[in-house]
């Protein structure tokens, strides 16, 4: 599903969190939203999902104007940073939740729901763990359950908020490769938020670099590295002498404006 965003604005009081964002996401694309904390990347992701009210602009899912659709109607697969798995439900119940809450008219039969849940579990390589509870899983397993749960509703777009943020370094690398493979297999339009330039540049087809509520550059990883459009982008994706992307912390928010935005988001 192709997504186009036009003049999307969002402010907290007098502080702008998103400044008239224009963005086109191609169908089947894997797009990264990259930026320091407070740059507006998570706000943009949540606005696409319909979790965040906006002050102006439009969001289009293919031919559908999604601007006025509720979260439920948008049918986006959202993977939360800390997964938000339902603690009191088994893995299978978590995954099939989106099918089970449908109106009876649209709800598949019970056996069909179970079959699809098990299929998804196999897809995320967790076959046989359907009866487990979230607290009995490792971090990486939880993340995959969250992904399967989002895929179960056959979403128009897959939105991932810092998908690897809560994992340790080793698992993070493995899951990154796996997510790329899964994306290529399933072909869902996917947007993920990250503050880790290495992650964005290695994984995504295109990278959106954000700063202080505005888009600095949208381009392929190579283009961003070779021809940074602004000084901010250049500094943010700086490479060290050995040719590795700097693993250092992202630059701190520098403008007053951004610091306020940061404080608002954190608070």
């Amino acid at each position: 599903m192709q997504i186009s965003i036009r003049q999307l604005s969002k402010s907290y009081g007098s502080v702008a969190a998103l400044n008239a964002i224009d963005l086109d996401i191609a169908s089947g694309e894997l797009l990264a939203l990259l930026g320091p904390s407070g740059s507006g990347k998570t706000t943009l992701l949540r606005a696409i999902a319909g979790l965040e009210p906006i002050n102006g602009g439009r969001i289009q899912f293919g031919d559908i104007d999604a601007t006025e659709l509720s979260v439920q109607e948008r049918r986006v697969g959202f993977v939360f940073q800390h997964y938000a798995l339902f603690k009191h439900m088994s893995v299978l119940d978590n995954i099939t939740f989106g099918l089970r809450v449908r109106k009876r008219k649209y709800r598949p039969a019970r056996e069909e729901i179970r079959r699809r849940g098990e299929e998804l579990l196999k897809l995320v390589q967790l076959g046989g763990l359907e009866a487990r509870y979230p607290n009995q899983l490792s971090g990486g397993q939880r993340q995959r359950v969250a992904l399967a749960r989002a895929l179960a509703i056959e979403p128009r777009v897959l939105l991932l908020d810092e998908p690897f943020g809560a994992l340790d370094a080793k698992v993070r690398k493995e899951l990154r490769v796996w997510l790329r493979q899964l994306h290529d297999e399933t072909g869902y339009t996917t947007v993920f938020v990250t503050h880790d330039q290495e992650e964005a540049l290695e994984l995504a087809d295109r990278v959106v670099v954000m700063n202080a509520g505005s888009i600095e550059q949208v381009d392929t990883p190579e283009a961003i590295l070779r021809r940074p459009a602004t000084r901010f982008v250049a500094e943010f994706v700086e490479r060290d002498a050995a040719g590795h992307y700097t693993a250092a912390h992202p630059p701190h928010p520098r403008t007053v404006h951004e610091r306020v935005a940061h404080a608002v988001r954190v608070g």
């Binding site: 319909g50 102006g56 602009g57």
Partner: peptide, 15 residues
């Protein structure tokens, strides 16, 4: 703001 919402349906928070 020139891009003031043209939204007719009020935003319904998910929570």
């Amino acid at each position: 703001m020139s891009t003031m919402a043209t939204t007719h349906r009020p935003f319904r928070s998910a929570t």
